[in-house]
């Protein structure tokens, strides 16, 4: 009995050890860390003004490792350009970067191009723009890319490694060398409207050589020049890149309910930070209210009924006329 229980205990313990060793082996073979790999960059974008002639400029960005893993971060800079009208960027290949007049990546240097972030560590990363006095006139921009490098993967067949990277967009203006100029490309206001406009799409283009933050006010006034609805554009301070357009979808705040049918004026005041006064776009439009449409339909129906009755009565008279003739 004693021998059997000792044997059972040995078998049980051996099985347990086997299971544990297999599990440990699997984990170490995959190399998959247990935690996630989130990193935060702040600010995600920043605007820098460098005085004319100043050769270099150093600024800071913050990076946080939100994970329980130690990570290695590689720094690089990459030029970009606008992708569409919604504030997206398109990273440039090195070849295209060379011909980009707004290039900045080549002027960006790092004290450390690679560093370690311990679990939950936050660090400040100093970044220097060198030869700033040699930058061409106008705006320059690039993305600082913080790439978390992963350990090589072993023990999995046909794996795809996934690296993560976050970027901080840097927009530089050299004071006194840039031009900012806005042009309205499109406003979604027609000549006649059956619904009173409460949302408007506006497309602005930066005709200058420097990125700009447009500001402005949209108003709709009635025939007495009283404001019916109004709103401010670009309250989130979005940028327009030079020679690019950006769409602003705005919602108007109404001050008068159920505006009556009539002539209205759409007014758009807009400017760049460099402008003293606002540029003004005005467009008159006719708003036909639902009540007016219903009334018109009712009158039309009545007219049709009257005409139909008239035609009927004429048709009744005509045969007699025919016979009398």
């Amino acid at each position: 009995m004693g021998y059997r229980s000792t044997k059972n205990l040995a078998i049980f313990t051996s099985l347990q050890l086997l299971i544990i060793s297999v599990a440990v082996g699997l984990v170490s073979a995959t190399g998959i860390p247990s935690g996630v790999h989130g990193i935060t960059v702040s600010p995600a974008l920043q605007q820098i003004s460098i005085p004319r002639g100043q050769p270099s400029y150093t600024f800071n960005t913050g990076l946080a490792n939100n994970t329980s893993q130690t990570v290695v971060v590689q720094l690089s800079a990459r030029d970009f350009t606008g992708l569409n009208e919604s504030g997206a960027i398109s990273f440039l290949t090195p070849q295209k970067s060379n011909s980009n007049v707004h290039s900045l990546a080549q002027n960006i240097t790092f004290e450390l191009s690679q560093f370690v972030l311990t679990p939950y560590q936050t660090t400040t990363v100093p970044i220097t723009i060198v030869n700033a006095n040699e930058l061409s006139n106008g705006g320059h921009y690039a993305a600082i890319i913080y790439k978390v490098t992963s350990a090589p993967v072993h023990g999995i067949s046909n794996p795809v490694s996934v690296n993560e990277a976050v970027s901080s967009l840097v927009f530089v203006t050299t004071i006194g060398t840039g031009t900012q100029s806005l042009a309205l490309q499109y406003a979604s206001i027609g000549d006649i409207s059956l619904t009173f406009p409460n949302t408007v799409n506006l497309v602005l283009t930066d005709k200058g050589n420097t990125q700009t933050v447009p500001t402005g006010v949209v108003q709709i006034t009635n025939a007495n020049n009283a404001i019916v609805s109004q709103t401010e554009i670009n309250t989130t301070s979005n940028l327009i890149l030079p020679q690019f357009s950006r769409e602003f979808k705005i919602s108007l705040t109404s001050y008068k309910f159920n505006p009556p049918t009539g002539y209205y004026t759409f007014k758009f005041y807009y400017k760049t930070p460099a402008q003293m006064g606002y540029s003004l776009y005005e467009k008159k439009f006719i708003f036909i209210s639902r009540q007016a449409v219903i009334l018109a339909v009712v009158i039309l129906v009545l007219l049709i009924v009257l005409i139909a009755q008239r035609v009927k009565s004429i048709a009744r008279i005509n045969p007699r006329d025919k016979y009398s003739a």
């Binding site: 995959t30 996630v36 702040s42 974008l45 993967v153 046909n158 794996p159 490694s161 996934v162």
Partner: peptide
């Protein structure tokens, strides 16, 4: 300041046997 956080759930994405 605006900040941005990206979390990638795993560093590997295995196909296994094709």
């Amino acid at each position: 300041p605006p900040s941005f956080t990206l979390v990638v759930g795993s560093n590997t994405d295995a196909f296994g046997t094709l």
